[in-house]
């Protein structure tokens, strides 16, 4: 897989895949997509990087420690946003009832906690996918 064509094309195409992934995550409440789909697209770009350049090069760009921190942070942000609803006296994971500003429907900064939760899910899914893939192909690190 260490072909020059694969490496050059991967280098060109990865930023666009990641841009599209972030677009899908940040427009999760406006257009088809959301945290799961966008996170998987971002993870797909990183998997393409592993396939083209090898696990060692990918480990330098996204260390396993960072991936673990992002993953835990996604879950923690999700629970903390849920607990905000409890703190103000509404239900767990409440949105409008917990006083999050809904904004104008159709804008990027709208819909209260949905945007924050979608971003948290997106980063968590991306780091989970890349961690699963890295551990599954770990034996080929020497090759």
């Amino acid at each position: 897989m260490r072909n020059i064509i694969v490496r050059v094309i991967a280098r060109v195409i990865i930023p666009f895949i990641q841009l599209y992934g972030f677009y899908v995550v940040f427009h999760g409440h406006l257009s088809p997509g959301g945290g799961f789909a966008g996170g998987t697209i971002i993870a797909a770009s990183l998997i393409l990087y592993v396939l083209a350049f090898g696990l060692v090069a990918e480990e330098k760009r996204v260390p396993e420690r960072i991936a673990q921190i992002i993953e835990s942070l996604g879950a923690i942000v999700y629970v903390v946003i849920g607990l905000v609803g409890v703190l103000v006296g509404a239900q767990f994971l409440g949105n409008k009832i917990a006083g999050f500003p809904l904004g104008v429907p159709g804008r990027i900064l709208s819909s209260g906690s949905i945007l924050i939760l979608t971003i948290a899910i997106g980063f968590k899914v991306a780091s989970t996918m890349i961690t699963l893939f890295n551990h599954l192909i770990e034996d080929e690190k020497e090759g």
Binding site: F36, M129, L132, H135, L136, D139
Partner: peptide
């Protein structure tokens, strides 16, 4: 069905780990 997709991905990863 999003839940189902997530569970499917997790089970596939776990099965592949067992196969390794």
């Amino acid at each position: 069905i999003l839940t189902g997709i997530v569970v499917s991905v997790s089970i596939t990863a776990f099965a592949l780990a067992l196969i390794i």
